[in-house]
């Protein structure tokens, strides 16, 4: 068990330190996120949509697309000088490589969120009032879901020439079902829709805020476990 933790922390620290020293992804992510927020802010002026609706939309879109940047890097960087063989030849469980990469991607997305959430709140003049813990919880759950699938597929597409476009297609397709409860949860946090919703629309099938969080926890758990189990097949040469 101690070996597992030391391996996990070694790869995690390596990824974070590499990024902090080279600053290859984080600045790009933040600028892309801000540009997405800016474009949607302009759009919300034009179409007269409630800002409480556009705010969560801006948050999820910027997380998804900026998340793709960091996930794509996580294995492409290993591929560049064949560093991946060093990882694969090391006498460690391949599942541990997945978990540490997942942790590093989640941490990077968390840093991104800490910067981009205030930007969205200011741009759309939003505030979750007393619901800060709910906001943080929903963002963290979404973050884990996005990173879990993204990390696995990053290993899958690392040899392909159309790496980034292929990664975006795969990740967005698999995450589509999770984005429905995620959108609902953020909309309720900002008071754009009531806590419980009845009717026949796509969002009302989630039902309530608690159910939306439940769906997200279930998706995260299923995706993390399945991706962890299948990672060995995805990384093998």
């Amino acid at each position: 068990m101690r070996f597992f933790w030391s391996t996990l922390s070694a790869i995690f620290v390596k990824d974070i330190v590499t990024e902090l020293r080279s600053r290859q992804v984080l600045p790009t992510m933040i600028v892309l996120g801000m540009l997405i927020v800016w474009v949607l802010r302009m759009a919300s002026e034009a179409i007269l949509t409630s800002k409480a609706v556009m705010g969560p939309v801006a948050l999820w879109i910027s997380f998804l697309f900026s998340g793709l940047l960091v996930q794509e890097r996580s294995f492409a960087a290993e591929q560049q000088h064949d560093c991946i063989y060093g990882l694969l030849l090391a006498p460690i469980d391949q599942g541990t490589i997945y978990l540490s990469k997942l942790l590093a991607n989640t941490a990077m997305l968390c840093i991104f969120e800490i910067i981009i959430v205030p930007v969205v709140l200011v741009a759309f003049r939003l505030g979750p009032d007393t619901r800060w813990p709910a906001l943080a919880g929903v963002l963290l759950l979404g973050n884990i879901g996005i990173s879990s699938v993204g990390t696995l597929f990053s290993a899958v597409v690392r040899v392909s020439r159309a790496r980034s476009s292929l990664l975006s297609v795969l990740v967005l397709v698999v995450l589509m079902p999770m984005m429905i409860p995620a959108t609902f949860a953020l909309l309720t946090v900002f008071g754009a829709v009531p806590e419980t919703l009845q009717g026949t629309g796509a969002l009302s099938f989630i039902g309530s805020f608690n159910a939306a969080v439940g769906y997200m926890i279930a998706f995260d758990a299923v995706f993390v476990v399945a991706c962890w189990l299948l990672f060995g097949f995805a990384i093998k040469e």
């Binding site: 699938v149 696995l152 597929f153 899958v156 040899v159 392909s160 020439r161 159309a162 292929l166 297609v169 795969l170 397709v173 698999v174 589509m176 079902p177 299923v222 995706f223 399945a226 991706c227 299948l230 097949f233 995805a234 093998k236 040469e237």
Partner: peptide, 26 residues
């Protein structure tokens, strides 16, 4: 995914199988 993976047929088959299982979770 299938049409854009280079390399050996075994590798492509394995990766597609992994994607199929993850996709089935939906």
């Amino acid at each position: 995914l299938r049409s854009s993976l280079p390399g050996s047929a075994q590798r492509r088959a394995r990766i597609c199988a992994v994607f199929a299982i993850i996709a089935f979770l939906d």
